[in-house]
Design a protein around this nucleic acid. Structure first.
Length: 174
DNA sequence: CTAACTAAACCTA
DNA sequence: TAGGTTTAGTTAG
C-alpha cells in the first residue's frame, strides 16, 4: 500500500493506493498534521480487512496525474478523475452502489432511489445512502452527486457543507 | 408551498 | 437489533 499527502488550493489531501487501484482519497484538511491524522484513522479501519490485499497484479498506477487533476478540481477546472479503484475493502452491496456512482459524470446527479433501481433493488434507497457513507475514495467515486428525491441535498459524512461546495464547484448550483 | 410526522424498506456492524 | 448520505404519503399551517 502506497500513500502520500499533497497540497491543493483547498488544503492537504491524503491519497492511498494498492496494486489494484485507489484505496483512499480524503477531502482536503487545513494543515498537513490533520491530514495525517485523518489518514491514520482511516487506515486503522482498513487494517483489519487488508489481509485480502495480497496478490494484486498491478496496473502501473502512479499518482502524478491524479494529483494534478485533484489540484485542478479544487481550482475550479472540469476534470474526469477516471481512475481504477481497489474495491476489495467493500461488501458486495457497497461495490454495486459505489461502482454505479463511479459512473456518474461531472455536472450530473442521481437520487438515492435512482441508484437503488439501477442496481436492481429499487426499494433500497436508504441502504444506498449507507453504502455511499462507506466510500473512502471521495471525488473519484463522486458520492456527492447523489442527492435526495425531493431535490434537497441529502446527507454527507464529511458534512453537508462539503457536499454543497463540491456540487457548486461542478456548477450544479446556480 | 413548507414543516412535521409516519410507516416501510434494506444493509451493516 | 439499532441506526443510517431515503422515500412516499398524510396532515396542518
Amino acid at each position: 500500500m502506497e500513500k502520500v499527502i499533497f497540497e491543493t488550493v483547498a488544503g492537504y489531501t491524503a491519497l492511498c493506493w494498492s496494486g489494484s487501484g485507489l484505496v483512499l482519497l480524503n477531502l482536503p484538511e487545513p494543515d498537513r498534521f490533520s491530514a495525517e491524522e485523518k489518514l491514520r484513522t482511516a487506515l486503522e479501519g482498513l487494517a483489519a480487512k487488508s489481509a485480502e490485499e495480497a496478490g494484486s497484479a498491478g496496473h502501473g498506477f502512479t499518482p502524478g496525474r491524479l494529483i494534478d487533476e485533484v489540484r485542478a478540481y479544487f481550482g475550479g477546472e472540469k476534470v474526469s478523475l477516471a481512475y481504477p479503484v481497489d474495491w476489495s475493502f467493500y461488501t458486495e452491496f457497497q461495490k454495486k452502489v459505489l461502482k454505479r456512482v463511479h459512473a456518474i459524470p461531472w455536472g450530473s446527479v442521481l437520487t438515492y432511489g435512482q441508484v437503488a433501481s439501477d442496481i436492481g433493488n429499487a426499494s433500497a434507497s436508504r441502504a444506498v445512502g449507507g453504502a455511499a457513507g462507506s466510500n473512502r475514495v471521495l471525488l473519484v467515486v463522486p458520492c456527492h452527486r447523489v442527492i435526495a428525491a425531493n431535490g434537497k441535498i441529502g446527507g454527507f459524512g464529511a458534512g453537508v457543507g462539503w457536499k454543497e461546495r463540491l456540487l457548486k464547484n461542478e456548477g450544479y448550483y446556480r
